[in-house]
Design a protein around this nucleic acid. Structure first.
Length: 128
RNA sequence: CGAGCAGGUGAAACAGCAGCAUGUACAGUGCCGAAAGGCCGUGCAUGAGGAAAGUCCGGGCUUCACAGGGCGAGGGUAGCUGCUAACGGCAGCCGAAGGCGACUUUAGGGAAAGUGCAACAGAAAGAUACCGCCGUCUUUGACGGUAAGGAUGGAACGGCGAGGUAAGAGCUCACCAGCGUGCGGGGAACCGCACGGCUAUGUAAACCCUACCCGAAGCAACACCGGAAAGGGACCGCUACCGUUGGCCCGACGGGUCCCGCUUAGGUGGCUUGAACCCUUUGGCGACAAAGGGUCUAGAAAGAUUGCUGUUCACGACAGAACUCGGCUUACACGCCUGGUCGCGUG
RNA sequence: GGGGGCGUAACUCAGUUGGUAGAGUGUCACACUGGCAGUGUGGAAGUCGUGAGUUCGAGUCUCAUCGUCUCCA
């Protein structure tokens, strides 16, 4: 199942206002049901994250972390992934467990196998 | 060897796996569509910067306005000569300031066209006598002369010395500074010399004057496709039926087709071959120009070179194209190259 | 991507031709009251976002820079 892109401002605002969310210093995930019969994904990095270089990097890391889960998402959801300041300093391998935990918590995976609770990875420090 | 000056250049490298965008080739009688075309797969090629940034200037391009010329308003620039498509940019030179020097910095036209302002202080801020000095008289003062001295200030009829005088003063003279005229040099800014009257404060990044330049807006421009709801025009019909107005009749409106058209969701183009880049030669002090040869080098639309692993080193700064080009300004870890200068030592 | 504005006391704002920076609210002290509120009197509080330049002298003029708001689909 190919995930569509979410690009309308009204859809983002609907996700923030009505959706369920899960938060972590590296990533915030919002999810809300839509009536399209397919799922859509939006990734945002606000100006608070940094300049264009930092925001592009944050988006790329989150895209890379999301790729393994792309085919396992339930249909009919709008998902919004929000980058934070610490995301710029992280690696995609550190983002992925956070995303997995969030997807489980929000019930977005098709085969909801019972996983052992994932421990939060440490937030990277600035000098790394 | 040390210190310092100027210019140029690079912007970590390599390998493996996975992945993204564009172009191209091939394949499936695959999927969507009336069609044009789009989507899906595999291979190959290409894929951010010196500042891509700030948006401070100047162009290309597009739309609107506009016959041509003049005057005015508003804005900009300001030594001279050149370079350039153009510029407020660049090069060389001149003047001024700084440095032992290599060299650096410089909004650097006009204040005798006019107006304004110069707080406080000071007698007085281009016009003047407060104290002082000198002279005269009707002598606790008045009048006249005087800018050498005091005091105020950022700035006070140029500075300093000598002569001169009642005391003084470019009144006279030497030197310096400034202004004007003449001669000589230079392409010009300007420089040098001579003479003259001895006078004019500062501010034009205050108004202003002089010379030159400028139509406005910007790719979210604009063009095309498409065209919801309302509206306008033309034609058809003016008959039947229905509704509204009306007590009723007549009449009016609501009808159909075509065209125009504001705004709006969406799509396509604009979108990358260009004052382009690289090399060589020639001309020029240089900016740059000319000739010859070679190359095609991002073009997205929520927005593309990234994730993970490994190796090496100098251990990686500032930072991400969005129509495009030439500059300026600002940010920045380090490395390399070239040419001058000063000091010390040795020959 | 491209236009336009605004930064002054803790807060909200004034500040005409450059010449000692003000107002209201708040805050502090004192007085009126037995105490509080309220009123009155007096006081403190400012690198004028930052850095250069012009000028004798910049909140004001010029340039650069930082932050913030807003408009254009």
């Amino acid at each position: 199942m190919k995930i569509q892109k979410l690009n309308q401002n009204k859809d983002f605002r609907r996700a923030y206002a009505k959706g369920k969310y899960a938060a972590h210093p590296l990533l915030v995930t919002y999810a809300v049901k839509n009536r399209l019969g397919e799922s859509r994904l939006g990734i945002t990095a606000s100006k608070k994250v940094g300049g264009a270089v930092q925001r592009n990097r944050a988006r790329r890391i989150i895209t890379a972390a999301f790729r393994p889960w792309e085919n396992k998402i339930k249909n009919g959801y709008d998902i919004v992934l929000v980058a934070r300041t610490a995301t710029t300093l992280a690696r995609s391998t550190q983002i992925e467990p956070v995303l997995k935990k969030h997807l489980h918590k929000l019930g977005l995976l098709e085969h909801d196998e019972k996983t052992s609770s994932v421990s939060d990875p440490a937030v990277p420090q600035a000098h790394l």
